[in-house]
Design a binder for these strands. Structure first.
Length: 404
DNA sequence: TCTGGGGTCCTAGGACCC
DNA sequence: TCTGGGGTCCTAGGACCC
């Protein structure tokens, strides 16, 4: 197999940069996109001027306001506008490589394997990506290129803002060694301290631990995962077809709520939002989840499977409201309430994308039993038992319509 | 200093079935 | 009056990421 080349692109301070681009009067000033001071919430993104005061993403807005001078600007996020800019960027990137995986509003992976022959070495491809984004939307991005997703991602983080870092396969170990272990994916505020208590600080330190020891400390799966990452082993696949698995909407109230009518109204509104998005995306979910948060960040979820998948506002709302009413929450004041739908089962997407799985999609006059079993086995082998249900449903309906 | 919103993935217990 | 073992589904919680 040929060596793969993966590029990770990360827009610099995305929300804040768009605001500064569109409002020249904000340029050069500390700018925070997120909650307004005096209300509940956190910093979503802040400009580099604000970062100089120690302000960071996810920091409570109250603390950000304490750190920043009075001339700082605070804006509510305009997700629709940012989404449009994001779409422009993703479209532009497709002119560079057909395989673009959008991982969030401000991040993408590109498979640029083999492109050196066409448009120059890795460095030059990275430069072109940056130039493309700058020409299209007037923003800067940090770019990382490496033999897999992990290395590309860490490389884009290496120099910010407006950076470009290329790590070749033979440089991976030297590149990883001095980095703090917290850059590894999946080592957050709970599991990083476990390793730090063992005196580990850098990725080189982590690599000195055996697979067995890491599994003992972090659990089998997480341990194996960190063990591999520390050696620079990670996926080198870019999935340009990835689709979301859930749609949700939640609301944190400025003051905790005790009036059920307000909670009901909020859920109703959330259901409309979620239903709308689901219908836009032609999705129906068979699992409705209620999320509720009380004082002290005490968070709970309740979910119910539906016999028939839905995208109807009323049904989503009705189910979530029942989930709320079914439970003795003891009239605790509610900080957050929300709902979501999921459960369209990944196999649906895959089957829709691969109609050939069932052979020639042209109309058949009969479905031979032996052929049916053969394809069902193929499906279950590929996608697991879920797919069998879908498969049999599909064939059943065909059989039924033929017998009419 | 209290902690948004939108997600993904993993774990673990109980139900249920063979 | 003692009750295995494996597999899968459902549900709740939680860690983590951007």
């Amino acid at each position: 197999m040929s060596e793969r080349l993966i590029m990770h692109i990360d827009l610099d301070a995305f929300f804040a940069s768009i605001e500064q681009r569109d409002h020249p009067e904000y340029q050069g000033r500390p700018l925070v996109v997120g909650a307004k001071p005096g209300r509940r919430g956190v910093v979503a993104t802040c400009s580099y001027e604000a970062r100089r005061y120690g302000v960071r993403s996810a920091m409570p807005i109250s603390e950000a306001a304490r750190r920043l001078p009075v001339e700082a600007v605070y804006l509510r996020p305009d997700i629709n506008r940012y989404g449009a800019v994001s779409q422009q960027i993703m479209t532009a990137l497709q002119s560079l490589s057909p395989v673009v995986e959008k991982v969030s509003v401000d991040e993408a992976f590109l498979d640029i394997t083999g492109m050196e022959l066409l448009i120059g070495n890795a460095e030059s491809i990275g430069q072109q990506a940056k130039q493309l984004i700058h020409d299209q939307v007037g923003l800067t991005a940090s770019v990382g290129i490496g033999p897999n997703r992990l290395i590309a991602k860490l490389a884009s983080d290496y120099q910010k803002p407006d950076g470009l870092t290329v790590v070749t396969a033979d440089q991976v170990e030297a590149f990883l060694n001095p980095l703090p272990l917290t850059v590894l994916r999946g080592l957050g505020s709970k599991s990083a301290p476990i390793l730090q208590r063992l005196g580990l600080r850098t990725i080189a330190d982590v690599r000195r631990l055996s697979l067995l020891e890491l599994r003992r400390q972090l659990g089998n799966l997480a341990g194996t995962n960190i063990y591999q990452q520390a050696q620079g082993i990670a996926s080198d696949r870019v999935d340009d077809q990835s689709t979301r698995k859930s749609i949700s909407k939640e609301t944190t109230f400025d003051q905790d709520i005790t009036d059920p009518a307000i909670l009901r109204e909020s859920l109703h509104w959330s259901a409309q939002e979620v239903g709308y998005v689901a219908r836009q995306e032609h999705r129906k979910g068979s699992l409705v989840t209620l999320k509720i948060r009380f004082r002290g960040f005490d968070t709970h979820t309740r979910s119910r499977s539906l016999t028939t998948p839905t995208s109807a506002d009323q049904e989503i709302f009705k189910t979530a409201w029942e989930l709320y009413r079914n439970e003795p929450w003891d009239d605790q004041p509610v900080r957050l309430i929300g709902l979501g739908i999921s459960g369209w089962d990944g196999a649906i997407d895959k089957l829709e994308r691969q109609p050939d799985l069932f052979g020639d999609p042209a109309p058949h006059t009969e479905v031979r039993q032996d052929r049916l079993y053969q394809t069902l086995d193929e499906v279950s082998g590929k996608f697991g038992k879920h797919a069998i249900r879908l498969g049999s449903k599909r064939v059943d309906s065909k059989t039924e319509s033929e017998s009419e």
